[in-house]
């Protein structure tokens, strides 16, 4: 069984090699004439003010947390989706109740305006 994963490992190292080779080749072939201005982060030509290690909008964090909730939900749905014929209507209602609980959360979050990006 585990040997059926071997090709994936081979492919993994092949792709890693391709990526590394492409970067390495460009590194070798390309000219390099560094200057202070070239090494500055490009922010539309104006002198940089501070670094990019800034705080950013809390909305991205809310999105990430929502993603976690629904990703876990989908992880629970996968095994049910494979077995739902055997579980029958009982399993279906159980899954509906589970999804409904999380959907209530989503509706709450949306009503609170957590995903208003205007």
């Amino acid at each position: 069984m585990s040997e059926s994963y071997l090709p994936i490992f081979i492919l993994f190292f092949v792709t890693l090699g391709i990526g590394g080779a492409m970067l390495g080749l460009a590194y070798v072939l390309g000219p390099r004439k560094p200057s202070a201005i070239k090494e500055m982060p490009f922010e539309f030509g104006s002198p940089n003010i501070g670094t990019a290690r800034e705080r950013f909008s809390v909305k991205y964090y809310v999105t990430a947390i929502l993603f976690l909730v629904f990703d876990i939900e989908s992880v629970f749905i996968y095994p049910w989706a494979v077995l739902f014929r055997e579980l029958g209507w009982f399993g279906f209602v159980e899954m509906l109740v589970f999804v409904a609980f999380i959907l209530v959360g989503l509706v709450y979050v949306l009503r609170k305006g957590a995903l208003e990006w205007e």
Partner: peptide, 22 residues
């Protein structure tokens, strides 16, 4: 990259990817 525009792009990319991932 330590570039504010790149950081903004990365944030947008992450939020967008995970939203559609589900």
């Amino acid at each position: 990259s330590n570039n504010k525009m790149a950081l903004l792009g990365a944030l947008r990319a992450s939020a967008q990817s995970i939203s559609y991932e589900i």
